[in-house]
Design a binder for these strands. Structure first.
Lengths: 255, 255
DNA sequence: AAGTGGTCTAGACCACCAT
DNA sequence: TGGTGGTCTAGACCACTTA
């Protein structure tokens, strides 16, 4: 199914602005996998014909989707559906740097365990786990720089949303975890919220990090959301900041 | 000096887009205090005449400044210069919440000390302290919720950039620190970067926070920047997260 | 009712990228 | 060279706010 074959219904008399109607239609195409990450969009002239509006209106809709990080325009080339890759991932979701340096590096990731288990009450609630398949996939990873482990990550996702995901697929992915979600399961993590605390390292975590129990570490609890604010991933990171730091940058516009 | 009296030189033959030239000119007005926080901008028709371009071009320039959080448009009212106030501050720069709650509250702030001192080498470097006035203002604050202290903040700013700032003015401000910077000294903090670590509480900090020495706490090192990426504030927060958490939210667009 | 920003049109021309 | 997005124009009409 190509986007060119779809009959769109844009209503010029609706109280919803045309550009918003178009944005929503393109959005639906992403959800229905008519548009896929990395794909080239039809050019603006074609979209003008598909939606039967003027080019400025199409550009407004695309501009908003670009600002939201969903599409990317490349002059002379075309407009593409964004995808998580190593580079963008590095700057969007990866917030660990060495002391005395601003360089970000892809960490070495080692999967420690991969389990299918019953969802806890909290997981059922936050991840909206269906009753007919109340399983979650629970994964532990160790992250390292130059062989030196700095973080232990626990990832929890709904088995229902990631059908057929198994340890082999997870370990043999050729890219980031978010890229895997996106390309194999059409789950695009568009935003996330994090809560950070300083805690004494529990014994099992201290062992994974190779530090003494009760050493101060960061506990970062992240919830990853789709475009539609649907929570799809719970990630808990335990970070030893004795040699690395957790960073954030922001503009005054962002909440 | 009103913006209406300025003779702007917009060059239609420049390789710089008109909208960018206009954006830069408006920017300069902010720096030169021709436009001040909270002020109403001239309407779009007037700007069209001032810059001698079409309305779409003016709107593009304003739109970008709005996205950057510098201007805000209100339909039926006009376009205003943004200012830090309690509400926006709460959502832009304030990242502390109670456990089990997403509510953000303005903390109670108590100034512990206010000193004028020689800048350290690091402060000279980062804050670009001038040789002819190598003093910095160093302030310690305690932050609390409902009387319960959760953070100790150290603020370091250049004395040269905040002339005549003294303890009385600082303590008797009627708004946030950032609002004070902006309204009294024309310093607008437009973005900031933070580095977070978990450390054992030093004795003096533990005393301020009312906890045992060596308890795990967050150390948050923030650098505040102006529009032009000029570092103007160093802030170090020591946070006891036993009852509160540090949060962040972000969209995939933001780095 | 008057004034503001918000939406939308129907083009023109330019800058960039691939071949 | 042909195709793409980027910039810009000169309006028209709508929705919202205040008075």
């Amino acid at each position: 199914m190509s986007i060119r074959d779809i009959k769109f219904n844009i209503d010029p008399n609706s109280k919803t602005p045309l550009w918003l109607q178009i944005k929503n239609e393109l959005f639906d195409c992403l959800e229905k996998e008519v548009l896929k990450p990395g794909q080239l969009m039809p050019n603006e002239k074609t979209l003008v014909e598909l939606f039967n509006v003027s080019i400025g209106t199409v550009r407004k809709a695309i501009g908003v989707l670009e600002n939201e990080g969903i599409l990317i325009r490349k002059q002379g080339l075309g407009t593409f559906v964004c995808q998580h890759d190593d580079h963008s991932f590095l700057f969007k979701y990866f917030h660990i740097v060495h002391h005395d340096s601003d360089e970000r590096h892809i960490p070495e990731v080692e999967c420690v365990s991969f389990e299918l288990k019953d969802a806890s009450d909290k997981e059922i609630d936050v991840l909206n786990i269906p009753k007919e398949n109340n399983k979650v996939i629970s994964i532990y990873n160790k992250l390292a720089f130059q062989g030196k482990v700095h973080s232990a990550d626990k990832i929890v996702i709904s088995a229902a949303k990631f059908p057929l995901l198994n340890e082999e697929i997870f370990i043999n992915r050729h890219n980031t975890v978010y890229n895997l979600y996106q390309n194999k399961f059409n789950v695009f993590i568009a935003k996330c919220s994090e809560r950070v605390r300083a805690i004494p390292a529990p014994v099992n975590v201290a062992k994974m990090l190779g530090i003494k129990a009760n050493s101060p570490i960061l506990k970062i609890s992240r919830v990853g959301f789709t475009y539609h604010d649907e929570a799809v991933e719970l990630r808990t990171s335990y970070v030893n900041t004795s040699e690395i730091e957790y960073i954030r940058q922001q503009y005054s516009t962002v909440g």
